[in-house]
Write a protein that binds this DNA or RNA. Structure first.
Length: 161
DNA sequence: GGTGCAATAT
DNA sequence: TATATTGCAC
């Protein structure tokens, strides 16, 4: 397993209130989550955040706003951004987004992101070939289970090799 | 009223 | 294209 253990490498962003542009900076960058971890952040503040909200997939705009302690934002705003966030997370599941996929997959076309192939491979591509996206694992991946504390049994993590 | 999705506008 | 805003349905 030369794969990285976790996925997101939250760079930690200081979320200060101000204009939406500011808070957006945190979310827009897909830091994985709103790292509004202020005060003495513990080793797993982000995880807590995720547990707190139950995952971006089930987090409610209002709660997010509350947690973010931003009163400049409205539910609609958070809602919209949350939508975007979900979309991205749903399509490009966080995982071993390591290198290797660049030079390797170069043969195809310009398909970066190997997680896609990986997912399809791992899943065996359902039957109808398509990339119908089962959404099952994807959702679970960053939805309920998430890797907050315990590791999931068998996931499409390091099958990239 | 709140939330999710989709369409639309910038 | 991506992001923001708005509308509509649940």
């Amino acid at each position: 397993m030369q794969c990285k253990e976790t996925d997101d490498g939250l760079p930690l962003k200081e979320n200060d209130d101000g204009d939406k542009t500011n808070w957006l900076s945190s979310v827009q960058l897909w830091n994985s989550d709103f790292n509004i971890v202020d005060h003495n952040k513990k080793p797993n503040t982000v995880s807590e955040l995720k547990l707190q909200l139950g995952g971006s997939q089930v987090a409610t705009p209002k709660q997010i706003k509350e947690v973010m302690q931003v009163d400049d934002l409205t539910n609609d705003e958070v809602k919209s951004h949350l939508q975007k966030y979900r979309l991205h997370i749903r399509k490009l599941p966080p995982s071993s987004t390591r290198n290797q996929c660049s030079e390797n997959m170069k043969s195809q076309s310009g398909s970066p992101q190997c997680p896609l192939t990986v997912s399809a491979l791992a899943k065996g591509m359902s039957s109808t070939g398509g990339d119908s996206m089962d959404g099952e694992e994807d959702e679970k991946s960053d939805g309920l289970s998430w890797r907050s504390g315990v590791h999931k049994p068998g996931e499409i993590e390091c099958i990239v090799r």
